[in-house]
Amino acid sequence: MGKLYKHHLFWPLCILAALLLFNLFYSPDFFSITMHDGHLYGSLIDILNFGAPLILVAIGMTLVVATKGIDLSVGSIVAISGALACLTISKGTDQNALGLIVISILLAVGLSVLLGAWNGLLVSVAGIQPIIATLILMVAGRGIAQLVTGGQIITVSSSKYSYIGSGALATLPFSIFVVVLMLIVALLLTRKTSLGLFIESVGCNPTASLMAGIRANWVILSVYVFCGVCAGIAGLILSSNVSSADGNNAGLWYELDAILAVVIGGTSLNGGRFYLTGTVIGALIIQTLTTTIYMIGVPPEITLVVKSFVVLAVCLIQSDSFRAAIFYRWKTRHYPGEKESIRHVS
């Protein structure tokens, strides 16, 4: 029992369970799932389907955060990738040609790799702080996305393309399979190769990692590339779901939701240990919260207030000073450096 309590998934799962439980009482419809022409419908399915892009972006973000970094540009990459794919398809003569779809997907993912590599190079080689380095693409990326779409919303009418985001495979939304596939890729990359070990090592102690012979720059570059790819695929799902690309609004606020998902999932913003499954649950929590608020009839924008409290609460719990402030409030006088040294000695 004590072990269960300490498991890193314990708290995220509890929150998720509490949310579901609330829905069970408040809106019993929440759990009903119906079948329509081979598709399953229902709130739970919606959460998975609409949450898919967020989960993807958050998976990529987890690895970046584990290296003590952050990627603010994911929302822009989501928009660019969707825009490029839709543009390629809309230029084609037969929008349903499989070859065209494949090319457009490859183009979009290829561009995402480049954008991720750009971020990675700025952080690793140029040595610019991650927040600042990725800010550049966050600002310029929106412009690039609008440049691609020509400032309009590009709509495509390709049933094959829209299959990615709204098709069904074995009665479940296809996007879920994409997410599961990427999650498996990420898990294999980090747990079956030693990349995961190196990421944690670099995030926890860069100097010591260098001294142990780890190529920190390569590790950092690869996580930003992976994060770019995840965002790119998320962009495909998102644009395919609505069969259109909106350079201005696609993927707006995704970077923030993704960071929130990572933090809720138990990965610290200070780098080091990371938890991919925790992140997935974190993203599901966010999506469930949004859906719940929708269902109980409160304006969905109020989710933001709830999110802000969740961010603060999680960060305060992770903050040493906050815990110290609670536990040692009365005991110690303020000697700068003393607490520091006590922490070093013990």
Binding site: V263, P299, E301, L304, V305, K307, S308, L312, C315
Partner: peptide, 30 residues
Amino acid sequence: AIIHYFKIQPFIVTLAGMFMARGLCYVISI
């Protein structure tokens, strides 16, 4: 105060502030 006394990165605290202020707008009116 939160940034200084609890030593949380300004980035994340002001991010929360951003969510909160934006959300409060909608509390007033959509």
